[in-house]
């Protein structure tokens, strides 16, 4: 069984992002990077599948610049068997391009499962799983929160507004993960040491597929306005607050 996990290098969500002064992108200087948190759930799920069936290969794939090897190593340290970097020279911001590059690679690899994060937390578009499903002709289950491996097959859970959907799944399939009910494992020391020795293939993507969108410019979020203190005695302060919420901030 061949299980692919897609992983992306994204800025650490704990640090505030700043738009470059010329508005062409995010100011990346000195930014700490992590593996996209949703991809960590996907990686954990892939490892659990492999452990449960006691056989198979988990391959971490990233489409990104050279630095994405770090992210692949994180998945390898968690336990993935090998990595593949689909290497591009500049960061891609177009989901169709990413999906094209991934599908070009994956279609000749005969994957049984492709596990993904439901979105990358940098651009937050969440389109790649759907595009990839379309291009490969694989079914897709989105925003999965739990996975159980039974003898008969896989049981997936999706949380909806109305309750939990329980889905029986068979390969081939793409699954995109929401923040799951299980915890991604910590990379162990031996895992990190072994990860350095595991193979990572680098496929240079020389001809970029066509892009579908162009980002014109980035606007920094509006600065937070100063708070207002209503310095009136009760009950005038409540009246004033209600008035402001209605008329000024239009929340109620």
């Amino acid at each position: 069984m061949k299980i692919f996990v897609t992983v992306k290098r994204v800025p650490d969500t704990g640090v505030p992002l700043r738009v470059k002064s010329d508005r062409t992108g995010i100011d990346r200087e000195g930014l700490p990077y992590v593996i996209n948190p949703y991809d960590e759930y996907a990686t954990e799920a892939a490892l659990r599948i492999k452990e449960k069936i006691g056989d198979g290969e988990v391959i971490a794939v990233s489409c990104g610049t050279e630095d994405s090897i770090e992210t692949i190593r994180h998945a390898l340290a968690m336990g993935a068997d090998r990595g593949v970097l689909l290497k591009v020279n500049d960061e891609i911001t177009d989901s169709v391009q990413t999906a094209d590059i991934l599908s070009d690679y994956l279609k000749s690899e005969n994957p049984d499962f492709i596990l993904m994060g439901k979105k990358a937390v940098d651009y937050d578009r969440g389109l790649v799983p759907a595009y990839l499903s379309e291009k490969l002709g694989f079914p897709l289950e989105t925003c999965v929160t739990n996975m159980e491996i039974k003898d008969s097959g896989f049981v997936l859970e999706r949380e909806t507004e109305y309750g939990v959907e329980i889905i029986e799944a068979r390969s081939p399939l793409i699954i995109s993960f929401e923040k799951a009910k299980f915890e991604p494992r910590f990379p162990s020391l031996r895992g990190v040491m072994m990860a350095k020795k595991k193979p990572v293939d680098v496929n240079e993507i020389s001809n970029l597929p066509a892009n579908s969108t162009n980002i014109l410019s980035y606007e920094p979020p509006p600065e937070r306005k100063k708070g207002k203190i209503i310095d009136l005695p009760f009950p005038d302060n409540v009246k004033e607050l209600v008035k402001l919420l209605k008329e000024e901030s239009k929340i109620i």
Partner: peptide, 16 residues
């Protein structure tokens, strides 16, 4: 699970 207990154990005995 993170192998921290292996740190001070020699390699011959499953440590680091």
């Amino acid at each position: 699970d993170a192998d921290l207990f292996r740190v001070f154990i020699p390699e011959e005995y499953e440590g680091l």
